[in-house]
């Protein structure tokens, strides 16, 4: 397993080269000229040239590409071109608010989703199953923006049950501000979660070993919880763990409407202002997080299914 982990970690290297290449190409071909954004509406050709020199954008493309690779490997992304803030500090400051909304929402929606799925799998084909399936599809058909607009207006404004917006750093100061966004997160996630978990559980329920268990006289609930759920864990782990990197990156709309200073907003601002160092940092961070969490899911497979060996 040790060799497998080392091998997978080494995969990060070509992936970073690839990610850097893609963002470099996108930045140079698709993104706007950052000097226009940085110098504003009065920029002159001379000022833009000076700035290009200062930012190192006049150097050969290969040098510029390797600069990106270097900062990706050292995790030193410097300062934002736009805000002049240190990017590592921006990420640290933004990750906490993002996680404080996404993590509780994610954990609760995963647990709730799993419980509901087990229940509907148990009552498969009956009224409760149909109702839950219809509710999930109906819930998923409504855009996330509609949920946010309505919940903010109704629960925060009309009923005054929550803060309309804002964020305070530190526990428990942030609690009043994350309650409503977390609830919305749960509602947004629960539909797809239940549908996925239900499908996975039902796939298992018709396996031969379940028939054998029934023949042995085990109760349906024991079969579900002890055998089916355990065997369904592999796709469930993949599904859950692969979502983890996106929790750190934040939920753009939720953060924006509830004025939560998370990473979603930082990324959006960077994209809107051609703030390349920040875009670069966020892209590299996502890629690395994705690899690490997919490795984690592989390791977790061996925990849930000892037959799996990582080589």
């Amino acid at each position: 397993m040790k060799n497998y982990i080392i091998k997978r970690l080494l995969y990060i290297i070509p992936v970073i080269f690839g990610v850097c290449f893609i963002i470099f190409v996108l930045f140079n071909l698709v993104g706007g000229d950052p000097t226009h954004m940085l110098l504003g509406k009065h920029a002159t050709a001379q000022q833009m040239e000076e700035l290009r020199r200062t930012l190192g954008l006049d150097r050969p493309l290969l040098y510029q590409y390797f600069d990106i690779v270097k900062s990706a490997f050292t995790f030193d992304f410097g300062r934002s071109w736009n805000t002049k803030q240190e990017i590592s500090t921006m990420i640290m400051d933004g990750a906490i608010p993002s996680l404080s909304v996404s993590l509780p929402g994610f954990i609760l929606s995963s647990i709730l989703g799993l419980i509901i799925s087990v229940v509907v799998a148990y009552y498969r084909g009956r009224k409760i199953d149909t109702v839950v399936r219809i509710a999930c599809i109906a819930g998923m058909s409504i855009s996330s923006l509609a949920y946010i607009l309505f919940f903010q207006w109704f629960f925060a404004y009309k009923l005054s049950l929550f803060e309309i917006s804002g964020y305070e750093y530190g526990f428990p100061n942030f609690l009043p501000y994350i309650l409503l966004p977390s609830i919305i997160w749960i509602i947004l996630s629960i539909g797809p979660d239940v549908r996925f978990y239900r499908t996975v559980i039902l796939d298992e329920i018709y396996q031969d070993y379940v028939r054998t268990a029934r023949a042995k006289g085990l109760s349906e609930i024991v079969i579900l919880l002890k055998h089916v759920l355990k065997n369904a864990m592999i796709p469930i782990i993949t599904y859950v763990v692969i979502q983890l990197p996106f929790l750190i990156l934040g939920a753009l709309l939720l953060e924006s409407f509830f004025s939560i200073p998370g990473l979603g907003g930082i990324t959006l601002n960077a994209l809107n202002s051609s703030d390349f160092p920040v875009i670069k940092a966020m892209a590299v961070l996502s890629a690395v997080a994705y690899i690490l969490f997919s490795l984690l899911s592989d390791i977790l497979y061996t925990v849930f299914d000892p037959r799996i060996k990582l080589k």
Binding site: I164, S256, S259
Partner: peptide, 18 residues
């Protein structure tokens, strides 16, 4: 000074006297 980039957030906040 609070930052609220969405118009609805500012609008509801004002109507709540925030």
């Amino acid at each position: 000074t609070s930052i609220a980039t969405e118009a609805q957030t500012r609008w509801l906040g004002f109507q709540k006297a925030n």
